[in-house]
Design a protein around this nucleic acid. Structure first.
Lengths: 288, 288
DNA sequence: CAGCAAATGAAACATTTGTATTATTTAGCG
DNA sequence: CGCTAAATAATACAAATGTTTCATTTGCTG
């Protein structure tokens, strides 16, 4: 990454830690949007970075530049010399990655984007909306995802428990799995994430919950998946991948969207509660 | 908003014959140095083109633009982005305010796709490739992701341990965190996933690992994030979301891509090993 | 060559720019 | 709590910007 950037970026990064908060804000924007420095006026950069013009001036002085123009010039230069195909004027720019195993990665990107597009499709939105309502109305919300599916399940539960206290992530450690489900009943719901090859334990758990009368919300790959058998709401997501392993980005996007809906339903304070909770957790080493 | 830029050049070329000599001089310069239009002021362009400022103004009017800024914008836009369609999508998402909740979900989809596109961008691929090589060469691979970042970290570790046995997922349960890191050394690597608000514990752990000489691979939101401080490879991913909570789909896509690369490096048998392992795990209730 | 319309240049303007200066806020400390 | 020094915002101002207006030059036609 270093070689791609002018030395000035390096300087920005190295100086970052010793800067004041406002200068950090400016420096950070510059590091993350280097093009804008070459493209816009100083005041324009300040505006985009959410900072006063004077702050940019101070930053240039702090970094050791005599005036803003000296800081800007390298960024300009970089934009000037970057794309040689600029010389080929009115040609449409077709810059796909080079050949070789890069193309696999390009496929991967395309596939993942398709997964997202499908998972958050217009058809799925009303289903997700209903599912969120069901969970919102539940006494307890159980969350289940084993093996790879643990990732989206965990994230859902983690985000959810920041603003609600009635969730339970089903855990397989120490053989307590069955115990956790014992209390499930008709006024509860179970969010289950499951993809082929389906785990037997997941299927059993869903069956048990369904018999207990719980509402099942299934995030899975097909309406005929075993997880969807007894489900009240089935959210179908793509999990295809050009790689050997299926992808969970679609499922993750779905669970994140569900969280968004649930926070909205939870009312106005929820947003602030979550933000506060996260900030506090980051400071105190909660798990140390 | 697409590739307006080639069109403007086209217009310049098509109009060229019918222009007056002085306007031709200006038009010619623009066609041959399109970058300068985006980079410099109008007077600057005039100077470089060897033409009076008024000439440029006349040219923009002759071409049908209301003012110079409209002529300049597409050139700017072109310099800003490698893939114009990405930038267009992305900015349209950001411009949006808080409308009805259906549009929030539409924004969410667009945003998530942009996150993926950015995370698996052409610039990131070589970095990820290097990172994968570093991990491949390591004696042990430690994996760290706390709170929300646990999801991608977990998935990486889960998929990895299907075909390699030298990984360790750093766990905060039961106060054993520090013990797990004790053995880390110069021939090891640490994959860390961290997003703001950064967890202090994560930062401490990265620092400790770096001092022990381990190679750090950071999946984070910025090159100046604390997790990237001592990192040998920093993979920057977008985690923006129109919702209250940041998104982890980008980070997940990155870790999945890393797995793909690592399996490839591991050699031909790895693919089959993984597939077999998954099938077996699904049948026997491994954790029951 | 005179006449004259088109093209160009010069000057003037209201804005906007970068920066220096001054005022205000913030955070730490006794 | 007040005090103080650092950090930030507000203000001021000269220089530069984009544009319009007016003056000058150019190239043509009779």
């Amino acid at each position: 990454m270093e070689s791609l950037y002018p030395d000035t970026i390096r300087l920005l990064i190295d100086s970052y830690a010793g800067l004041t908060p406002e200068l950090q804000k400016a420096a950070r924007f510059m590091v993350e949007h280097p093009e804008e420095i070459g493209l816009n006026s100083m005041r324009g950069v300040a505006r985009e970075a959410g900072v006063k013009p004077a702050t940019i001036t101070r930053l240039t002085k702090t970094l050791g530049f005599p005036e803003y123009e000296s800081l800007r010039e390298p960024f300009r230069q970089r934009l000037r010399t970057r794309s040689p195909e600029f010389a080929a004027k009115f040609q449409s720019v077709q810059r796909r990655g080079e050949a070789g195993d890069r193309s696999i990665l390009a496929d991967l990107r395309a596939q993942e984007m398709a997964n997202i597009e499908f998972s958050l499709s217009d058809e799925n939105l009303p289903i997700m909306e209903d599912a969120a309502q069901t969970m919102h109305d539940s006494r307890r919300v159980y969350v289940l995802g084993l093996r790879g599916a643990h990732a989206p399940a965990f994230l859902f539960h983690y985000a959810y428990q920041l603003f609600q206290e009635n969730s339970q992530l089903l855990d397989t450690s120490a053989g307590i799995f069955a115990d956790q489900l014992r209390g499930i009943g008709a006024s509860d719901s179970l969010l289950v994430v499951s993809f082929p090859p389906y785990t037997q334990l997941t299927i059993d758990a869903v069956e048990y919950a369904a018999e207990a009368g719980a509402q099942i919300i299934a995030v899975t790959d097909s309406v005929i998946s075993p997880a969807a058998n007894a489900a009240a709401h089935t959210i179908v997501t793509k999990n295809q991948s050009p790689s050997f392993y299926h992808s969970f980005t679609g499922a993750l996007a779905v669970t994140q969207a569900l969280i968004t809906m649930l926070v909205t339903k939870a009312g106005g304070d929820a947003v602030k509660i979550v933000e506060e909770a996260e900030k506090q957790l980051s400071r105190i080493s909660a798990y140390w």
